[in-house]
Design a protein around this nucleic acid. Sequence first.
DNA 1: TTTGACTTGTCAATTTTTGACAAAAATATT
DNA 2: AATATTTTTGTCAAAAATTGACAAGTCAAA
Lengths: 106, 106
Amino acid sequence: MKTTFGEYIRYLRTKNELTLTQLAAKLDLDSANLSKIENGIRDFDEKRLPKLSRIFGIKLKKVREEYITDQIGKKIYETNCSKQLLRIAEEKAEYRKLLNRKEKAL
Amino acid sequence: MKTTFGEYIRYLRTKNELTLTQLAAKLDLDSANLSKIENGIRDFDEKRLPKLSRIFGIKLKKVREEYITDQIGKKIYETNCSKQLLRIAEEKAEYRKLLNRKEKAL
DNA sequence: TTTGACTTGTCAATTTTTGACAAAAATATT
DNA sequence: AATATTTTTGTCAAAAATTGACAAGTCAAA
């Protein structure tokens, strides 16, 4: 899905006919803050992904994928990173992996 | 260049035959912290990009590109985001742009 | 072994993010 | 329309993360 993570949560919540207050309670969160999260004003705390996963019966892996694609998408958006530069960023990520392997090889 | 931003700074610094202390002074920074930045232990503060640009006579745009590709590359690396997921992240960035346009249209 | 360059550890200060509450606004119910 | 419920917004202190600064360390060259 190409929506924000906030919209994703809202989708799950309404599909399951929960109010903000109800879901917020399950997530151990204030409903006001959940509202902000759904509206993209605040970030969802990564620590709560497992809870979200359990509440809606969605594999953690899937939820985490929604999350990290949102995070990176947000960063791309915020930095106004072109597709061209994104390729370079990708290469730099590869480079970091390489570095990491070298470090471990010590 | 597909290096980390820290390595980029180190490259510029050594090419210009500056010591950590010298460059740190120009950047209004402690040499110990600059060392950490070059070694990837700490982040370079975005606020200092203009200074960096001036010191080495490199266009701010170019320096900023080095910076954001590093930032995003780092995020891709840290989240272990596959190329496949990165495509989705890209789409989500596009989606955010769309949202933004809609908001402005109000 | 002294000097200069760099690295590492620590901690307080600053900045950013978060949680919580109150109150307003919007929506639904009667 | 009046009331109840849900959602949104604003604010602020608490918590967390980042940064700046200093001290002490290593390392290499002279």
